[in-house]
Design a protein around this nucleic acid. Structure first.
Lengths: 144, 144
DNA sequence: TATTGTTATACTCTATAACTATA
DNA sequence: TATAGTTATAGAGTATAACAATA
């Protein structure tokens, strides 16, 4: 088995619907009201800082209309704030509230801790070079 | 950014719906009738060799009923063969046809080639140790 | 005329419930 | 009574179409 074949098999397993759902469940189980569908909205908003629904939709690869609906759901939960654009009355800026930032932090920590457990016992230099390689591969693999 | 955080960010990007769909599209675009929903059935059958719908459903993490329907679709395409169990008249064994095996080979090759392109220029030893680490991480991360 | 946000609607994927045949 | 397969039905997630307001 060549390295590329080995990587292909691992990615194949990772992309299986059930496994993906399982990872997302572990990620979001500690934050009420957030699930695998709304998590990307929070996470994207955290990275973008602030964005309109249209812009955010591009970032997370979802349709505008879906992003609007999920953002509304998160606003009801108090995790996302909506503010008007002073220069463009059509636009609405979405931002994380303090609660929203805390929720993202909680979920990120859950994922990081899961990964830390899974890599416990790895030599530090192996872990570090793996992380760098993975980032490089994902960047090369994904559009944008 | 710690290695675990770096890995978390890369996995987060990989699991985004749009990116996952994009990878599956590249994988299946060369085989008519197969898409991101039926691919796991073919791939799972290729690994299992032969399996009943119930057993295959467990392997790929889908419901029995869905697996039955997708297998029926693939049987219509001539990619999957259905044979009766001589010892149990209730059971139906699913197997890949020659065409089915060819389809799996085509799709696997597409993924492997995508990965090979993305890792072109990597030192051979780095690539190899990355592949080993990734397999180890995915095994530790996923149930089963 | 084009764009932002939104709502109405329809389609796809998946699971639950219910049925038949066999064990 | 339990299990394999299947079909009918319902729910969740997402996209397309259509609308109002603003640019």
């Amino acid at each position: 088995m060549t390295p590329a074949e080995e990587i292909a098999a691992a990615f194949g397993a990772l992309l299986l619907r059930g496994n993906r759902a399982h990872l997302y469940d572990r990620l979001t189980e500690d934050v009420a009201g957030v699930d695998s569908t709304t998590y990307p909205v929070l996470s994207g908003l955290d990275r973008a800082g602030s964005a309109t629904a249209t812009r955010l939709a591009e970032i997370i690869g979802l349709d505008r209309t879906v992003t609007t609906r999920y953002a509304a759901r998160l606003a009801e939960l108090g995790l996302v704030a909506r503010t008007a654009d002073p220069h463009d009355a059509r636009a609405v800026h979405l931002t994380l509230t303090v609660q929203g930032r805390a929720a993202v932090a909680t979920m990120r920590a859950a994922l990081v801790s899961t990964l830390a457990v899974a890599t416990a016992g790895w030599p530090a230099d192996e872990l570090e070079s793996f992380a760098v390689s993975l980032r490089r591969l994902v960047d090369a693999l994904l559009p944008g």
